[in-house]
Simulated scan of single mutants.
Amino acid sequence: MPDVTLPLPVVRAALNPVFRIMLHHRLPFSVQRALMDWGSAAQRAPRGTRVEYVELGGRPAERVTVGQDSDTATVLYLHGGGYTVGSPVTHRALAAYLARETGCAVQVLDYRLAPEHPFPAALEDAEAAFLELVDFGYRPDRIAVAGDSAGGGLSLALAERLRDRHVVTPAALGLIAPWGDPNEVPTRDRDLVVSKPWSRACAAAYLGRGDGSDTGYAPLLGELRGLPPTYVQADVDELLHNQCARLVAQLRAAGVPTEFTETRGLWHVAQLQAGLVDSAAAVTVELGQFLRQALRPARNRSIG
């Protein structure tokens, strides 16, 4: 649990105007990025967090650890932000909580962002990063892939690409409110974090001149059979909840072992505030434990 906790209503009230300003569709993406990086200073990481600046697949990345980490397993983390904003800096605290729970280094990739680099740039970067981790000596089944929002959709697209192009399966997928189909128009104007105009602007920027039916862009439209065990979390009041519920149903129909956590009273990717809110910390711990279990099956079987 966090060292300092704040009442949930207080945090919700404080975040509402922040997100309305920071993620406004009329703001240039460059300004949104700067505001997000600046605001991430309020996200508390656990004690003992260490950050190493590395390169993965030709892109900058942060290797985040807390305490002693495994040298045989790791997590590739793909941050959210509508494919247009966000960075390893904005997700450093969340990565640190996952590193603490898994006992593994969490590698947060600084993949290329739209509109400067539309689809498939982000997917190509994620693919290159995973394959380089394999080249470093990690077995594919000791690499978990996790991400939130757009990064959750990107994680799903990466798993499909690894299966189809490289006959490789990660240890697990950890998906926080994954944006699996950017073609889908929200049925409401906004939730606490995301507005319909902003999400549509991000979807258009990421697609560029691409084809919206491409399953690399919209992995929810792709074949899900053969994917690794998957964890999905979404709050019932967020815009992506119905899409996440549909993904879970399709994963289970495809025979993929799937855990689904539906929260009430949180918000889109509340895990970013795990250092401030007990209930956000709880679902972050839950995801971390899911990934830890997937990454250490051999050790668990050998006990006794």
Rank of each mutant, 00 (worst) to 15 (best):
M22I: 15
Y97W: 15
L247G: 01
G288W: 01
D164A: 09
D3Q: 14
D237A: 14
L76M: 09
F290W: 11
G81R: 02
Y217Q: 06
Y77E: 06
A34V: 13
A159E: 04
A280Y: 06
R44P: 01
E286T: 12
R246H: 15
F119N: 03
A281H: 15
E132D: 04
G174A: 03
W179M: 11
L266N: 03
V285F: 12
Q233N: 13
A204N: 09
V168I: 08
A121E: 01
P229H: 06
G86Y: 10
A171Y: 06
V134R: 07
G212C: 09
Y77L: 00
V134D: 06
F290P: 06
L173I: 08
E259F: 07
W198P: 01
R63D: 13
V269H: 03
V106N: 03
R47S: 14
D189I: 08
W179A: 10
V54P: 09
H79C: 02
F119A: 06
R252V: 02
V277R: 03
V269C: 05
V236E: 15
V4P: 12
S155V: 02
L131D: 00
P115R: 04
V145S: 08
D278W: 12
E101R: 13
S199I: 15
L220M: 06
S199H: 09
L131R: 09
I303W: 15
A34Q: 12
L113Y: 05
D181G: 02
L76E: 02
R163E: 02
Q273F: 09
W198A: 05
T84M: 07
D71P: 12
D135A: 15
